[in-house]
Design a protein around this nucleic acid. Structure first.
Length: 578
RNA sequence: CGGGAUGUGGCCCAGUUUGGUAGGGCACUGCGUUCGGGACGCAGGAGUCGCGCGUUCAAAUCGCGCCAUCCCGACCA
């Protein structure tokens, strides 16, 4: 591509409405333009990167045996009513009526459509397993779109759906997709981790998220420094501590103490001269309208998602003053386990605690010398606490470390959720009807592009990994008016194109500085500079965008030299097949 | 939905407090000089000051209403 023929509007100023690096650079680098909140147009440069990612995704999905389809974006309400999601899905689902007054929606995901297709076309175990995928525009009417294309309303997603005869088959399909995803993100040149994740509203038995590691990521992840365990912060497990020795008999009986206006853990521990870890925090939640008291050590934090999953409830929120008063008979700040009118669950951190302080369920009072097991017996323990850095890995004795990531892929084992709701059945070899076992697998294509930038940039601009770079090489003659420079550039341009490289020839009549700045901004991995001095010696310069390394190469050998470098980088990122 | 901020040529912003000729930089057009890290000079084109209503002799500026965009939170995957 000749720069002069390309449509690449770069801008110097940082757009006033772009906060994150990837958003700023995608706009400055002429990749995208915003149409309206959360909705973007892709310009030629941006679209080239999207297409590169798509290509890698297609190759790996095809390799894994999935078949590409293309499903409708406009979907009838009936399907969603059948799956139950018409009422469950919130305002994210953009609904509208067609001219016949029929309810429709824009597809935020395609479980309903694919299940409908498969149930009507697949009738026997002989046609299974099957995995179908598509790359398509999704629309989710996000409450608050932000971070450019990272969290937008209209975006490109690869979604795949597997159908198997049984659980074992579904596990195999899941593993195939898991492996394909690892290959995809490796080949994109991204640093990522697959982490255990909460299944959220999609449901299902287990799932993994693929996180591109970047300090600006929205999600927290923890990983073990010795084994392969990694999980979303929301999900990260904590091992059940070993039970303590039987209670010593030297703890005096419980005793109420007057603690006027002392409510928070800090206030209580300061007032009674004890460590926060020796105070029990009692948080009252409203779980589907029922009060639940969650106990945890004073110096720890509750992970609400764990509480929600443990209770299996739909709605979980902090109880309001009214519910707290009803359960404890006291205002906020004096809740405790003794005599509370609520179900009680306790975090593992409380196992074997003795002689601790907790609220007395009476305004202005706390209780001390409380022993779990002696004073409170009907208590179930669970892992309810938020992981902290340095916690012990649940799988080995290693220690857990925190990092931030951007979710670019998510694999779910769905089980029978949709096949039951929508009656997707097949006949087994006994002629008996069975539900298909499903899995679903998503990759945010456009988000992957943004994530790649978040992970790969510097003060000058983007730094594309070779496999997804819009162009692999940019040729920069420092002065187009010098005929011999222009000719040398043209010659190399032709040669590289002959080698099937993606080359951008900066044939603009611009000063060298302008060309250099643009090349850095759009992050082309290799920049060939053709200048008068070196050319006199028959040489050109090649600058590596990432390392800044400059090599002088004979013009005659430049094409071969570049091909070797670029293919070498691509090959080094492609995992070997088993 | 709650809290905060912003809206002025394509882009970044000043001007609003204290009402009185709509400005600068970048970008764009023409000419000349320059030419290896976002050059310079001269000349030009381009704006219903987000929209509406009101106050006033006079509104970018004051008042009310609305809209849009962004940030924090809630929500959501």
């Amino acid at each position: 591509m000749r720069y002069s023929q390309f449509f690449l509007p770069t801008v110097k100023e940082i757009p006033s409405d772009a906060e994150t690096i990837s958003h700023q650079l995608m706009i400055r680098g002429g990749m995208i333009r915003k149409l309206t909140s959360g909705i973007y147009s892709y310009l030629p440069l941006g679209w080239r990167v999207v297409r590169k990612v798509e290509q890698i995704v297609r190759e790996e999905m095809d390799r894994a045996g999935a078949l590409e389809v293309f499903l409708p974006m406009v979907q009838p309400a009936e399907l969603w009513q059948e799956s139950g999601r018409w009422s469950l899905y919130g305002k994210e689902l953009l609904r509208f009526k067609d001219r016949h007054d029929r309810d429709c929606c824009l597809g935020p995901t395609h479980e309903e459509v694919i299940t409908d297709l498969v149930r009507s076309e697949i009738k026997t175990y002989r046609q299974l397993p099957r995995n179908l995928y598509q790359i398509q525009t999704k629309f989710r009417d996000e409450v608050r779109p932000r971070f450019g294309v990272m969290r937008c309303r209209e975006f490109s997603m690869k979604d795949a759906y597997s159908f198997d005869v049984d659980n074992e088959g579904a596990d195999v399909s899941y593993q195939k997709m898991f492996a394909a995803y690892q290959r995809i993100f490796s080949r994109c040149g991204l640093l990522f981790r697959a982490v255990e994740a909460d299944t959220g509203s999609i449901g299902g038995r287990f799932s993994h998220e693929f996180m591109v590691m970047a300090d600006t990521g929205e999600d927290g992840v923890v990983y073990c420094d010795t084994c392969s365990y990694a999980a979303n912060l929301e999900k990260a497990e904590i091992a059940r501590p070993e039970d303590r020795d039987p209670l010593p008999d030297n703890v005096p009986p419980c005793e109420e103490v007057h603690t006027p206006n002392v409510r928070t853990i800090e206030e209580v521990s300061a007032f009674l001269h004890v460590e926060p870890k020796d105070v029990v925090k009692t948080i009252i939640f409203n779980a589907d309208g029922v009060p639940v008291a969650v106990l945890i050590r004073g110096d720890e934090e509750i992970n609400e998602i764990k509480v929600r999953n443990y209770l299996g409830c739909d709605e979980l929120e902090l109880a309001d003053d009214e519910m707290i008063m009803a359960a404890t008979g006291a205002p906020r700040g004096f809740a405790g386990a003794l005599g509370i009118k609520a179900r009680i669950i306790a975090d593992y951190s409380l196992i074997g605690m003795r002689g601790v302080v907790m609220g007395a369920n009476r305004e202005g009072y706390h209780v001390k010398n409380v022993c779990l097991g002696r004073d409170i017996c009907a208590l179930s323990f669970a892992d309810l606490r938020a992981v902290r850095t340095g916690d012990v890995c649940p799988h080995c004795r290693g220690s857990l470390t925190f990092a931030r990531g951007i979710e670019v892929g998510h694999v779910f084992k769905l089980g029978l959720k949709y096949s039951k709701a929508m009656k997707a059945v097949y006949l087994d070899n006994n002629g008996k009807e069975q539900y298909m076992v499903m899995g679903c697998y998503g990759i945010g294509v456009t988000r992957t592009v943004a994530a790649a930038i978040e992970q790969n940039h510097d003060d000058e601009g983007m730094i594309w990994p070779v496999p997804i770079a819009p162009f692999q090489v940019i040729i920069t003659p420092v002065n187009m008016k010098e005929e011999r420079l222009a000719q040398a550039a043209e010659k190399l341009y032709q040669e590289l194109q002959g080698e099937n490289l993606d080359v951008l020839l900066d044939d603009r009549d611009e000063r060298a500085g302008v060309k250099f700045k643009d090349a850095d901004l759009i992050g082309i991995p290799y920049r060939v500079t053709i200048g008068p001095k070196k050319l006199d010696e028959g040489q050109i310069e090649v600058k590596n965008r990432r390392t800044g390394e400059v090599a002088a190469v004979d013009l005659e050998k430049a094409a071969v030299w570049l091909v070797e470098k670029i293919k070498g980088e691509e090959d080094s990122l492609t995992p070997l097949l088993d």
